[in-house]
Simulated scan of single mutants.
Amino acid sequence: MKIIDILRQDKVTLSFEVFPPKTSDSYQAVAAATREIAALRPDFMSVTYGAGGGTSEHTVGIAAGLHEQYGVETLAHLTCVSSTKEHVRNMLDKLRAHGVENVLALRGDIPADGEVAHDYHYAAELVRDIKAQGDFCVGGACYPEGHVEAANKSEDIRHLKTKIDAGCEFLTTQMFFDNNILYNFLYRIREQGITVPVVAGIMPVTNVKQIKRILSMSGTYLPERFKAIVDRFGQNPSAMKQAGVIYATEQIIDLIANGVNHIHVYSMNKPEIAAGIQASLSEILR
């Protein structure tokens, strides 16, 4: 089933992101974690794609297993900054062979060594190429606070519109911790004629290390209420995990109450986090 058909249903959806192992040695542990998350029966699961395509085979393996063995609709990430057109074609052939028909098309981060391919420059080009190579449902990323490389938010939305015009059928947001940022973003993109479904990406922050990484990568705004939680519980791992799950759950409840019906949780391959959030929303998701 295509993700766009799930998102068009008149219901609240909850989905989870997992990431493949960086090495073959950790494949079994990651596969076990993804199985546990799949057992929660989310509306769909996404599988990320490592920087430079380094985990591409594992991405296909995890995505195929979720779809074939557990019957979970799967969204496979695919980045293009380090990919040739031939590599993209091979990846799409493999996904198609396993019945995976949903792809999240991303430019991807520039590798640390600066080595990039030159077949693609922007995600819109990848979207257009995927649509030309088969009946895939293609999603894309969006940034409620603006992409870090965009000159301003207006420019970022113009680029986003280009991606939609290329064939992107839905959007998943970068993490955010203040819902008002998303509400403002939705108003701005609707004004510019972007009407595709938007899935809110929520990151349950359960340890201080995550926060430092988030800030170093994206500079995401942290509300004072969230900072107070970190200051109070950051040195107590169990308390921080519980507080992080509660904060994320409260974000989700507010989003749903305000008409944002599609939630994607960045689970960090932690089944207990996914299960805790789902359990807290059990009646809301009915």
Rank of each mutant, 00 (worst) to 15 (best):
21 P>L: 14
217 M>D: 06
35 R>Y: 09
140 G>N: 05
264 H>L: 14
126 L>D: 05
75 L>M: 15
254 D>N: 09
249 T>Q: 05
199 V>I: 14
178 D>T: 02
273 I>Q: 00
183 Y>F: 15
22 K>G: 09
99 G>K: 06
257 A>S: 08
265 V>M: 11
126 L>E: 01
145 E>F: 10
75 L>F: 11
24 S>E: 15
62 I>W: 10
105 A>L: 11
6 I>H: 10
25 D>H: 11
61 G>P: 07
36 E>H: 05
256 I>N: 05
236 N>M: 13
27 Y>Q: 01
265 V>K: 02
135 D>L: 05
114 G>M: 12
51 A>M: 14
175 M>P: 01
183 Y>L: 15
236 N>P: 02
266 Y>Q: 05
17 E>T: 05
35 R>T: 11
35 R>N: 07
274 A>C: 07
61 G>E: 15
247 Y>P: 00
87 H>C: 06
193 G>H: 06
15 S>I: 05
42 P>C: 12
78 L>W: 08
123 A>W: 04
17 E>A: 02
148 V>F: 14
238 S>W: 10
24 S>N: 10
124 A>K: 13
210 Q>H: 02
250 E>V: 00
223 P>H: 03
38 A>T: 00
34 T>H: 10
240 M>E: 06
156 D>A: 03
161 K>T: 10
133 Q>D: 14
40 L>N: 00
104 L>V: 07
185 F>A: 02
191 E>T: 13
84 T>K: 11
70 Y>F: 14
110 I>D: 02
54 G>D: 01
187 Y>Q: 15
262 H>R: 09
236 N>H: 09
270 K>Q: 15
257 A>H: 02
5 D>R: 06
141 A>I: 12
27 Y>S: 04
39 A>N: 11
114 G>W: 12
158 R>L: 14
125 E>Y: 03
80 C>I: 12
201 G>H: 01
135 D>I: 10
272 E>V: 02
215 L>V: 13
176 F>N: 02
279 A>T: 08
60 V>H: 06
165 D>G: 00
228 A>N: 04
275 A>K: 13
153 K>F: 14
221 Y>Q: 12
58 H>Q: 13
18 V>P: 02
114 G>E: 06
86 E>I: 15
77 H>R: 07
275 A>Q: 11
3 I>P: 03
27 Y>N: 05
200 A>P: 02
25 D>N: 13
138 V>F: 04
48 T>D: 05
81 V>G: 03
26 S>G: 04
33 A>V: 04
206 T>P: 03
64 A>L: 08
134 G>D: 10
231 D>T: 07
88 V>A: 04
90 N>T: 10
10 D>M: 09
251 Q>C: 12
42 P>V: 04
278 Q>P: 00
167 G>I: 07
181 I>M: 04
112 A>F: 09
36 E>T: 01
205 V>N: 02
216 S>C: 03
162 T>L: 15
149 E>C: 01
106 L>R: 00
278 Q>R: 14
100 V>Q: 08
